[in-house]
Amino acid sequence: MSELGLVRPDMAAIVGQPFGVMESYPVTASDIRRWAIAVYHPEQPPAHYLDPAAEAEGRLVAPLDISVFAWAVAHREPNARQIEVDPKYTAVGAMEHNLGVQPPDLFRALNGGLSVDYTGVRIRPGDVIRSSTVIERYEEKESRLGAMLVTHNATTWTNQAGEEIKTARMALIRY
């Protein structure tokens, strides 16, 4: 058991193991334009997003922050390890059940911050994006709210050519 007793051995054992593997539908030019228009509203997005020739000429790339899984997922990799848990766990962002482990009994949560690293490989119309997540590490903290468990997750996107696009990290604080 860890120092503050929040990280059980079975939790420590799933660090670094992939879960939530999924594949997007092919990204469309319309997906890209609509995202850019929404985030730049009420001004116009940069001109290349609306240039009717950009797609045919290979100049249309998606905004870096686009989510290609927001509305639908084309394919989820079967996951025989997943166990059912009470919704009170998933309501605070628990993910351990995806790897066959009972989440910790912590039912309050905070977003401890986001970070992302981009490789320079851009998303273009027709791309199919694969996403895979791992728990990179657990961290324990004492705060005025008591003992806190910080779970550092990393989600990596690759395209149909196997090129890495980005790794996005989120720190989920449960207490």
């Binding site: 940069p46 905004p63 870096l64 977003n111 401890g112 911050g113 986001l114 970070s115 992302v116 690293d117 981009y118 320079g120």
Partner: peptide, 17 residues
């Protein structure tokens, strides 16, 4: 994106809300 345009690329971003 509006500042840098096609002169470079955002490689890393992090923030706390």
């Amino acid at each position: 994106e509006q500042w840098v345009g096609d002169r470079g690329l955002l490689e890393h971003l992090e923030c706390r809300f």
